[in-house]
Simulated scan of single mutants.
Amino acid sequence: MRHAPSPDHLVPGMSDRRPKRRGRRVLAVLLAVVLVLLVAVAGAVAYVTSSIGNDISRIPDAFRGLDAGSRPAAFGGTTFLLVGTDSRADVPTTGAAADPEADAGSQRSDVIMLGTVAPDGQSGSVVSIPRDSWVDLPGRGPSKINAAYAYGGAPLLIGTVERLTGIRVDHFGVIDFAGFTSLVDSVGGIDVTVARPTSNAGVDFAAGQNHLDGTQALAYVRQRYDLPNGDLDRASRQQNAIKALLQAVQQKATTDPGAVYSFATSVGDAVSVDDSLSNTGLVQLAVQTRHLRGPDLAFVTAPVSGLGREGEQSVVYLDDAQGADLWSAVRNGSVTQYADLHPADTLSDTPS
């Protein structure tokens, strides 16, 4: 099955106010700040995490206006809401290089993931939520979930995801196209396995293993058409790229700590996180997750019951019953067991 193209206008007149430059569309991949920077780097360079933290851009008031009494209860783990935005701005929008005047709330969240570390720091999960999921936005009613960031920035998206999942979001992170490209290049590229030959943005992907630099990796994760399941397959590619980046960083951590430190410092130029994640918090997470490795992470996609249309929009309908099982598994640290029961929603070794 394949998605029909989604409409460009989440907010009336939005694209009329910003130039349509295809080359400035922002990354369709989320980079889990903890799962990449801390999990992969902690064992080798935890002692410099605090200094690295000084270079990471902070997002002010990401939880502004959320009613503490109505939010889901904490379950002991640490959960990040991780966003890749679809910006049309002509300047960087995330990381230390971001224009301070950039209006983050005017961007669409092209990809949404929950990255969770279990309370004991021994396992974790990355769950993709399809960007076209038809959900209830607090105070606005039914809409695509990727409209939440455009309508209300981080607070509305956080509130929407918490209502959908029943999982409390502890931290918020965002990355853009240029940031992802530079991170892939900083580790010398990534290796991904492709199920069958495809092409996108002038890049050919052969069946089997492909070594990709940053520009090629961006084409890989942005491909949507010529994939059997459209956006759902693209979400798998995005997870696959994150997993490959983790593996590349972990390999360097055992052979060249200096190169890993260089990668870690580049994170500050690529990502932004909420301002409640202090340098002390970064160090604590580094210690907590120092033994966590890629094989300890489960990569799944929120279950889908079908595709359809709402007016002129192509949408994804989530499976509420199976979704309840998934969100419960996230809370109790049993996503691996959930993945075993639902292989169709689990990242395969050779995604399309």
Rank of each mutant, 00 (worst) to 15 (best):
T79E: 09
V135F: 10
V126H: 03
D110G: 05
D103C: 05
V91S: 11
A148P: 00
S125C: 09
P92F: 02
P142L: 11
R88C: 05
D86Y: 10
G95V: 06
T79V: 14
L114E: 03
R140A: 12
P119W: 15
G141C: 11
P119S: 09
V161E: 02
A98S: 12
S143A: 15
V127F: 06
D136C: 13
D136G: 14
D132G: 06
N146I: 03
A96F: 15
T85A: 12
Y149N: 03
R131S: 06
A104N: 09
V117W: 01
T94L: 03
P155V: 01
A104P: 08
A102T: 10
V83I: 14
V83E: 03
G153R: 04
V117Y: 02
S143Y: 15
V117Q: 05
T160K: 08
T85W: 07
L137G: 11
W134Q: 13
A97S: 14
V117E: 01
A104M: 15
A96V: 09
L82A: 15
Y151P: 00
G84L: 02
G153E: 02
P119E: 12
N146G: 06
G115A: 15
D120G: 04
A147P: 00
L156K: 01
G105S: 11
G105T: 03
V126Q: 06
P92N: 07
L81M: 11
V161P: 00
L114D: 01
R131M: 10
P142D: 03
P142I: 04
T160I: 12
G139C: 12
L156Q: 01
P155R: 00
D86L: 13
D90R: 04
T79Q: 09
R131A: 05
T116N: 04
T85M: 14
D110A: 06
V117L: 10
I129Q: 04
I112S: 03
V126D: 00
I129L: 15
S133N: 03
A96D: 13
G141Q: 10
D90C: 03
G152H: 01
S87Q: 12
F80V: 04
A154Q: 01
P100D: 14
D86G: 06
S128A: 13
T116S: 12
Q107H: 13
P119G: 09
A102G: 05
V117H: 04
R108V: 02
A150D: 04
G152N: 01
I129A: 09
A148S: 11
I158W: 01
L82C: 15
A89Q: 06
G115K: 07
G95L: 10
K144I: 05
R108L: 13
V135Y: 08
V117P: 01
Q122D: 11
